[in-house]
Amino acid sequence: VTTYKLVINGKTLKGETTTKAVDAETAEKAFKQYANDNGVDGVWTYDDATKTFTVTE
């Protein structure tokens, strides 16, 4: 299990959150659900070296 980070650069929501997941794909699903629940819809990137997803509106 690895800790992944999400950086949110939204129009109305900015911040960070983390999740523990077995792989990046599982973390991405959780983060996309989180973003959707919070009304954030943007461009996604992922940096494997830092295990960090970024979504920018």
Rank of each mutant, 00 (worst) to 15 (best):
V1Q: 15
V1T: 15
V1C: 14
V1N: 10
T2Q: 12
T2D: 12
T3E: 14
T3R: 06
Y4F: 10
Y4D: 01
K5N: 06
L6R: 00
L6E: 00
L6P: 00
L6Q: 01
I8R: 01
I8P: 01
I8Q: 02
N9P: 03
N9T: 07
G10F: 13
G10H: 06
K11G: 08
K11P: 08
K11R: 13
K11E: 08
K11D: 08
K11I: 11
K11Y: 10
T12V: 11
T12W: 14
L13Y: 14
K14R: 12
K14H: 10
K14P: 06
G15H: 13
G15D: 09
G15P: 05
E16C: 10
E16S: 12
E16L: 12
E16R: 07
T17Y: 13
T17M: 14
T17F: 13
T18Y: 13
T18M: 10
T18W: 09
T18E: 12
T18C: 10
T18P: 02
T19H: 11
T19V: 15
K20N: 15
A21T: 05
V22N: 12
V22R: 09
D23R: 05
D23S: 10
D23C: 05
D23A: 04
A24P: 12
A24H: 09
A24F: 12
A24C: 08
A24D: 05
A24G: 04
E25H: 12
T26L: 07
T26H: 10
T26R: 06
A27P: 01
E28R: 14
K29H: 08
A30W: 15
A30M: 14
F31A: 02
F31E: 00
F31P: 00
F31C: 03
F31M: 03
K32R: 15
K32I: 09
Q33E: 11
Q33C: 06
Q33H: 10
Y34H: 05
Y34L: 05
Y34V: 05
A35D: 01
N36G: 09
D37W: 07
D37P: 01
N38D: 03
G39P: 02
G39E: 08
G39Y: 06
V40N: 03
D41I: 15
D41S: 12
G42F: 03
G42R: 01
V43F: 10
W44T: 01
T45Y: 08
Y46G: 00
Y46N: 00
Y46A: 01
D47H: 07
D47G: 02
D48G: 09
D48H: 11
A49P: 06
A49C: 06
T50A: 09
T50G: 04
K51P: 00
T52W: 02
T52S: 04
T52L: 04
F53R: 00
F53H: 02
T54D: 03
V55R: 00
V55C: 06
V55N: 01
V55S: 02
T56L: 06
T56V: 08
T56D: 10
T56C: 06
T56F: 07
E57C: 05
E57W: 09
E57G: 05
